[in-house]
Amino acid sequence: MLLKRPRPSLSPSLSPPFARQRRRLRTWRRTRPFWGGLLIVLGGAELLLVPLSPLTVLVSLGPGGIAAIGIGAALVVAGLSLWFLPQARAYVSVHALLLSVLSFLATNLGGFLVGMLLGIAGSALAFGWTPLPAGAAPGATGGQDPCEHEAHGSGPRALAAVLPVLLAAALATGAPPARAAGGPGGPPTATRTPPSVATSLFAPQGFTFAGVTEVATADGPLRVLVLKMHAASLADYRLRTHDGHEEYGLAATSLELRGNVTLYLTKFSGCIEGLLCVTFSPDGLPAPPVIPPFVFMTRVSAEQALVTSDLIVTDGLRLEAS
C-alpha cells in the first residue's frame, strides 16, 4: 500500500523571487489609471522621438518639430501625473485628449498618427477609470480582480468607449452641413464680405463646435463654422469692415458676450493657452467638438460673418472711419 506524502507548504523564504515587490506593484497599479497613463506616456515619447529621428526627408525640425517636442513632453508629464496624482485624472485626461488631437494639426500628423492615437486611447482609459469603493482594499476580494466591479458600470466607461469614436468621426468628416440660413429660425443675412476681427485674448465659457452650415448673403450662401458658448470675454477687440470704398473700424478695450452666444466664422485662428497656434476653416479641419472651460486663446484673428448674443457689454468703445 502506497502512502501519499503531503505536499510541503512553501515558507516565505522559499516564495518566488521578488514576490513581495510584485504584489506591491500590483496593488499600486490597481489604485490608479495605470494603463491609460502608460499609453499617454508612450504617445508623448513617440511624438518626442519623431522630430529627433534620422528621417530628415520626411520630418522637418521646424515649427512642427518644435511643437511635437512641446506636446510630447506635455503628454509625458500628463501620463506621469495620472500615476502619481490619480485624484486629478479627469482634469489631466481632458488636457491630454486635447493635446493629442492638436498634435495632428501642429506636428508631423500627430507623429504619423501613432502618437496621436496612443494619446487619445490613453486619455479615454484614464477618463473612464474609477477607484475602488471606499473601504475596499486591493487584494481583499477573494482572488477576484479588485477592478472587476467596474465592468458592470455604464457611466464613465461608456463615455470613455464612445469618446474616441466621436472624436475620430469629427476629425474625419466634420459636422454635416446644415440648411442655408436666413429663413425662419435661422440667423439674419450676412454681409458680402465678412468683417475681420482681432483680439489679444479670447476666453470662452461652455465652448462647443456646432458644425458647418451656410448663411445667406447678397452674393449667395456662405459656408461658415458655427461656434456656440454660454459667454465669452475678449480683450483689445478690433473689428474692420468696408462698404464699397469706405472702411470702418470698431475697437473696444474689452468686450463681453453673455447668453446664447453664437459665432458664424469663415476663418478662425489663434494660439491655444498662448502656446499652440492653429487655424480652423469650414473647408479645413474643424475645431474639436468640445473645448474644456479652462482653455483660452491669444492673438486671435477671425473672419466673422455673424455673431448673436443675448447681451453685449463693452468698455472703451470707439468707432473709426477711413
Rank of each mutant, 00 (worst) to 15 (best):
M1F: 08
S9M: 00
P12F: 12
L14E: 01
P17E: 11
R24S: 15
R26I: 09
R30N: 08
G37S: 06
I40G: 03
G43N: 06
L47C: 07
L47D: 07
L55N: 08
G64F: 07
G65D: 02
G70A: 11
G70W: 13
A73I: 03
R89V: 05
R89A: 09
V92T: 12
H95P: 00
V101E: 14
L102H: 14
G111L: 02
L113C: 00
G128N: 03
G128H: 04
T130M: 12
G139E: 09
Q144N: 07
D145P: 04
A151M: 11
S154V: 10
A161Y: 09
L163G: 03
A172I: 05
G174F: 07
A180L: 10
G183V: 08
P184I: 11
G186I: 06
R192N: 12
T193W: 11
P194H: 02
V197L: 15
V197C: 04
F207H: 13
F209C: 07
A216I: 03
L222P: 03
L227F: 10
R238V: 10
E246C: 00
E247F: 06
T253P: 00
L285Y: 03
P286H: 05
P286N: 00
F294N: 11
F296W: 15
T298Q: 13
R299L: 08
A302S: 15
T308Q: 15
L311H: 12
G316R: 02
L317W: 05
L319Y: 14
